[in-house]
Amino acid sequence: MTIEVRPATEFDDVRTMVGPKRPDAESCWCLSYRVPGKVNRELHREARGEYVRELMQQGPPGVLAYEGDEVVGWAAIHPRADTSFATNRKIPHVDDLDVWSLWCVRVRPGHRGQGIAHHLIEDAVEYARSQGAPAVEAYPVDNDGAKVDLTMAYVGTRALFERAGFAKAADTDSVLNRFPRVLMRLSLS
Rank of each mutant, 00 (worst) to 15 (best):
Y154N: 14
P23M: 06
G68W: 10
T83W: 04
D95H: 00
D173K: 14
A124Q: 02
L120P: 10
I116K: 07
R158C: 06
C28M: 08
G37A: 12
T83C: 00
S27P: 08
N177K: 08
R185F: 01
L183I: 00
W103S: 15
V35T: 06
M1F: 13
K38I: 12
P60L: 04
F161P: 07
L64C: 12
T16I: 13
V18F: 06
E54F: 01
H44G: 03
E50P: 01
A133G: 04
P61Q: 05
S189Q: 14
S27M: 13
E26L: 08
E50D: 07
V141G: 10
D24S: 08
A25S: 11
Q131M: 13
V125M: 03
Y33P: 01
F11I: 11
D144Q: 13
T172I: 11
T16M: 11
V63W: 05
A169W: 05
L188H: 03
S189G: 14
A169I: 06
K90S: 14
H111R: 15
R22W: 12
I121Q: 00
R163L: 15
L120F: 11
R80Y: 00
T87E: 02
P92D: 03
L31I: 03
V72I: 14
W74V: 07
V155C: 13
Q58P: 02
K21F: 14
G73L: 06
D13H: 13
V5A: 03
R53F: 02
A164I: 09
G73F: 07
R6C: 03
R108N: 14
A128P: 08
G37Y: 09
A75H: 00
F85Q: 00
L31E: 01
M184A: 05
P61Y: 05
C28P: 07
N40M: 12
V63F: 05
A128H: 06
L102D: 07
S32E: 11
T87D: 06
L176T: 14
E70M: 10
M56Q: 07
S174G: 13
G113W: 14
V18H: 06
T83M: 04
R48Q: 05
A25P: 01
L176D: 13
W103R: 09
E54Y: 00
N88S: 08
E70H: 10
S130T: 09
V136A: 02
N177T: 06
A76G: 10
V71K: 04
R41E: 15
E50G: 03
D95G: 04
A8N: 02
E42S: 15
R106S: 15
E162G: 10
V94N: 02
D13M: 04
V141H: 08
V125W: 04
A170E: 07
T172K: 05
V63G: 05
V105W: 07
S32H: 09
P140A: 10
W74E: 09
P92A: 01
A65L: 05
P60S: 15
R45S: 13
G68Y: 10
D142C: 02
N143P: 08
K38E: 15
